[in-house]
């Protein structure tokens, strides 16, 4: 595809789940086929850590320790996805941010002028409370650009494997 591609920039939401790896595979495939820039974003969930400290479940030192863990986790995932993209001949941008996850993802989608947000399959929502607290659900509702929720990992794996490197 050449010329006036409708999707020039894709933001990939990385949350450290298996589903986000499937989303990454699909995002890489889309990026290559549409010649679109791919940006992988991981957000350290600072707000949840702070809530746990506020509720006295965490002590401050524990909050800081977990923040480091999450940061390392995020870096590891972003590195892995970057390598996945490289293996298919694609250079991507990665960013690790911190804050209220759904808010940061929404802001970044605006800042990057993303045409599409790609994310992994949402967790099942079984209660009203779930939809208030599930970051995936909140992101899905909050971002202004179109959202692609990637399903069917087996098929996506095939699509990814068949990509030229």
């Amino acid at each position: 595809m050449t010329g006036q591609e409708p999707i020039k920039r894709i933001l990939l939401y990385v949350d450290g789940s298996e589903a986000c790896i499937t989303a990454a595979q699909y995002g890489i495939a889309l990026s290559k086929s549409m010649n679109a820039e791919l940006i992988a974003l991981y957000v350290v969930n600072i707000s949840l850590l702070q809530e746990l400290t506020k509720a006295r479940i965490f002590v401050k030192i524990e909050e800081m320790d977990y923040e480091q863990d999450l940061e390392q986790d995020g870096k590891r995932y972003l590195r892995y996805i970057s390598e996945m993209a490289k293996s298919k001949g694609l250079e991507i941008t990665t960013e690790l941010a911190k804050g209220v996850v759904n808010k940061v993802v929404s802001e970044k989608a605006d800042n990057y002028k993303a045409d599409l947000l790609v994310m992994g399959e949402l967790d099942p929502v079984l209660s009203r409370s779930d939809s208030y607290h599930d970051e995936g659900e909140l992101i899905f509702r909050k971002v202004k650009c179109s959202v692609l929720v990637v399903k069917n990992p087996d098929l996506v794996e095939q699509v990814f494997s068949n990509l030229d490197s």
Binding site: L52, A55, D69, H133
Partner: peptide, 17 residues
């Protein structure tokens, strides 16, 4: 486990809720 920070804090959040 040390490697399950994301899930760990999510579960603690669920207990809090």
């Amino acid at each position: 486990p040390e490697s399950a920070a994301v899930q760990n804090i999510k579960v603690l959040g669920q207990i809090a809720r």
